[in-house]
Design a protein around this nucleic acid. Structure first.
Lengths: 110, 110
DNA sequence: CTGGATCCAAAAAGATACTG
DNA sequence: CAGTATCTTTTTGGATCCAG
């Protein structure tokens, strides 16, 4: 195998995971969906203050493509779309917990 | 309190940690330093294939500022500088482990 | 209400050359 | 050896307007 096998390849599980949660707001979206499952788009926008519609939509599409969130569009007017964590998304949230503890202990409360 | 208290503030430990490990190569640097403590600059560059000197130096300075790595310059010719994880850095690596497992299980081997 | 489309600014990273 | 200095390129996110 080459030192850099192919562009975009991951050398270990950690940087593979980092690609999935690398967006500026993604962990906040995951956290929000963990706290409140089956969130609507506008609800998420309120739960993640400061994010724009465009970026929220983009991140949700990426998370969906990565199998982290499930998107369900109900055929109604006005439109209603609900987002929820998949099984993989819940596992990811659990794997993120120790990192949250570390951040609180070593970065926050200074 | 405002919805976004002040620019750059963190709302939870996870995104605080994400700021620390957010660089493209940082987790690989941490992993290398975990495997091989007391690494020299050129050694690290070889252990993280593809990274440029500029980016490696910049990331090391940021990690040092965040208290993750310790830099020790020996006054010799030719120059010798050694990098090592701090206690916080070792704890961070440990907190990253579950994320690595998740990445292997859900992103790699497809 | 849920976004898509467009344009723009800022940040991050890469290439290359050079120095104590 | 261990970086710094520049310059360019790429990526990311923000602002705004518009549509089904």
């Amino acid at each position: 195998m080459a030192t850099v096998p192919r562009p975009g390849a991951h050398v270990c599980g950690i940087d593979a995971a980092m690609d999935v949660i690398g967006g500026k707001w993604k962990v906040l979206i995951l956290w929000a969906l963990g706290e409140r499952p089956h969130c609507r788009f506008g609800e998420l926008r309120r739960l993640v203050p400061g994010i724009t519609e465009k970026v929220l939509a983009a991140h949700l599409r990426e998370l969906e493509a990565d199998g982290i969130v499930h998107r369900e569009a109900h055929q109604e007017v006005p439109p209603r779309v609900e987002y929820a964590l998949t099984e993989a998304g819940r596992h990811l949230n659990a794997a993120l917990a120790p990192l949250g503890v570390w951040g609180r202990d070593h970065v926050l409360n200074r």
